Amino acid sequence: MKIRSLVIAATLGLATALAGCTSDGTFKIFSADYGSVKDAGYRLPSIPISKVPRQYHRQIVSYDTKEKPGTIIVDTNAKFLYLVLEGGKAMRYGIGVGREGFEWSGTARVAMKREWPTWTPPSAMIGRQPELAKWRTGMPGGLSNPLGARALYLFNGSGDTGYRLHGTPEWNSIGKAMSSGCIRLMNQDIIDLYSRAEVGAKVIVKR
């Protein structure tokens, strides 16, 4: 009986491996993709990815949704962003979200995409942090820019929501609620998402 159980277990393990999916629904994990990156004249530092919980590493996972491929779904509670793929899969990214009082949810679309974007702090933020007034007309893109290497600008029927999907140099904020409402990803992840997401893509932010 023991030998038979071992054979059954081995067979199940082989079937899982052949299917390309682990028991937790992960098809592929990209933990090796967080090294230093040269981009547009900048040298992004490597991320000590071993210090980031594994669930927040970029990975292809099983994902059941009626939304069409290309849709972006943000789960602010779980701190995940999903880019819907074909065949019941999604590319999943770990995210940082808005802290208490700055949460946002709803449906929007990607109206614009920018590389190394300029960051302009809103007037309300300058009111809370007067030292940011020097960037009232915009902080140029760069390694210390809060928007990181890429930004996707979210609009809805009323126009610019003021919210962005963007990179951040603060990799240790992933998995936490620390932002002023925007959805932040590690810079290596926002570069990947930027290359996949289309202008006009539907974005659903859930709370």
Rank of each mutant, 00 (worst) to 15 (best):
P48E: 03
I8W: 11
I190Q: 01
G70S: 08
M125F: 05
D33R: 00
L44K: 13
G35C: 03
R58N: 03
V203S: 10
V203C: 05
P146L: 08
V74R: 09
W135I: 09
E131T: 05
V205T: 03
V74D: 12
V199S: 10
A201K: 11
V7W: 12
V84R: 13
E103P: 00
N156A: 07
S5D: 11
P45H: 04
Q55I: 01
T65L: 14
L193D: 08
V52G: 05
R4Q: 13
D160L: 01
L6P: 02
F27T: 08
G20F: 08
R114Q: 00
R99C: 01
G167F: 12
G127D: 14
L12G: 11
V97T: 14
S31Y: 07
Y163Q: 08
G148R: 04
K51T: 08
A124V: 07
A177G: 04
L6G: 05
G70C: 11
S62E: 05
G41V: 02
R114I: 00
G25S: 05
G141R: 00
F30P: 06
I73Y: 01
D75N: 15
M125T: 10
V97H: 11
S105K: 15
A17W: 12
G181L: 05
T26R: 15
D64C: 09
K2Y: 14
A78R: 13
V97F: 09
M1W: 13
R136L: 11
L165G: 01
V110D: 01
R92Y: 01
V203P: 15
K51L: 05
Y56F: 14
S158L: 07
V52N: 11
K113F: 01
D24L: 00
A149R: 03
R54M: 07
A149G: 07
N172A: 04
G138P: 02
L6I: 08
P146A: 08
R109L: 00
K2T: 10
D160T: 05
G96R: 09
V110G: 01
A111T: 00
L147A: 07
G167Q: 02
S46F: 02
V205D: 00
G13H: 06
A201W: 12
V199K: 15
K134R: 13
E103L: 04
L81K: 00
L193I: 05
T107S: 13
A9H: 04
E103H: 12
D39Y: 13
S50M: 08
S5V: 06
P122E: 09
M125W: 08
K79Y: 14
K176Y: 13
R92A: 08
G101Q: 09
W135E: 03
S179R: 09
E86T: 14
F80Q: 04
R136Y: 06
R184A: 15
I95S: 10
A90K: 02
R4V: 03
G20P: 10
